[in-house]
Amino acid sequence: MKYTGVCTILCLLCISSGCTSVRFNEREQLSRSDMQFDAPALSSDLTNQIYQAREGASGVFSGGGGGGCGCY
């Protein structure tokens, strides 16, 4: 399973690296605040923290688990 996952992400990296470059002056839509991943940041942090406390998984759409317990 571990090797399958690594192979999957390597394939995705290869595919995405072939994407067309978007020039700086063409990035107006991509620069919009609603087009940023995990915006607004603090709200995303809070929500991901809850998912990590109530699910066996961690790090899905966020940067991994933290310290402490968070179990109740």
């Binding site: 996952g5 690594v6 992400i9 995705l12 990296l13 995405s16 690296s17 994407c19 067309t20 470059s21 978007v22 063409e26 990035r27 107006e28 839509q29 991509l30 087009m35 991943f37 961690s58 790090g59 759409f61 940067g63 991994g64 688990g65």
Partner: peptide
């Protein structure tokens, strides 16, 4: 990674 002027994709791998 930008795909075009209207879309982009985010890939991530987290190991703990």
């Amino acid at each position: 990674q930008s795909i075009n002027a209207y879309s982009h994709v985010n890939l991530s791998w987290t190991h703990t």
